[in-house]
Amino acid sequence: MMKGGWFRVYTLGYLIFLYAPIVLLPIFAFNDAAVIAFPLAGFTTKWFTQLFDEPALRGALANSLIIAVSASVLSTTLGIFASRATTRYKFPFKGGIMGMIMLPLVLPEIILAVALLVVLLGIGVPLSLFTVILGHVLVCTPFSIAILSAAFQALDGSLEEAAYDLGETPISTFRLIILPLVMPGIISSLLITFTISLDEFIMAFFLAGTEATLPVYIFSQFRFPQAVPVIMALGTLLVLSSILLLSIAEYFRRRGIAKTGGKDTGGFL
């Protein structure tokens, strides 16, 4: 009984630590005061109005969306190739090659960012959204591979052979059988790499040149105290859209499992 009691206290404490700051976001986003402090001063929506009137922020948001969409599509595409190769084929130095691809997962990001910066400047590539996309693909691809190789691993190899046997080519088999069956994994990978790219700071900070992404913009705004409530409003919107995205991802994952008659083992989300 006592043990169960302490466990409950621990769980509650953990959840408060995790979610209290996030709950504070909307509270201060609607609070009619420029300082972030209790007691609350009254209800307002003016921070949201200001938010939408800020051209620099709109630019940063657009940049971030462009980068996140490109990085998630590119890294998921690369992830599909790599996962297919590693689950289906034997090739020399497979372990070593896969290890090298997964390395960015554990390397300090700042090292990667600085190294990439030095190389890009060295070969004369100007810093732009494109260079940030490159950096994010590097960071996102290992996540994509981790998600997708699980999806490819779960495929029964004889399904593919059955499709050949029934007259399909390797390409039409991939389209008709493999792709639909790993689709939940692909959607998962797209959404997760999108989220990773969207809030990635270090690569964006080093590689963006004059173009700010959303996290870089937010970081820069904290120098101005009067901008903080606007950031709270922005944070509120970001949290809402994250919840929406993850719900969509979960919906697709469950539908995929139901469709193929598999067992729900929790999934990545």
């Binding site: 029964d156 004889s158 399904l159 052979e161 059955a162 499709a163 050949y164 046997d165 029934l166 007259g167 399909e168 080519t169 059988i177 639909p180 069956l181 469709k259 193929t260 008659g261 598999g262």
Partner: peptide, 27 residues
């Protein structure tokens, strides 16, 4: 394999799980 006049019933049956019975048979 896709050009041979043979067809196979696999040990695991290899039924395509995302298709209906009719779609499987007509594949």
């Amino acid at each position: 394999a896709n050009k041979r006049p043979t067809n196979m019933v696999f040990q695991s049956y290899a039924i395509f799980p995302h298709l209906t019975v009719a779609e499987n048979v007509g594949f």
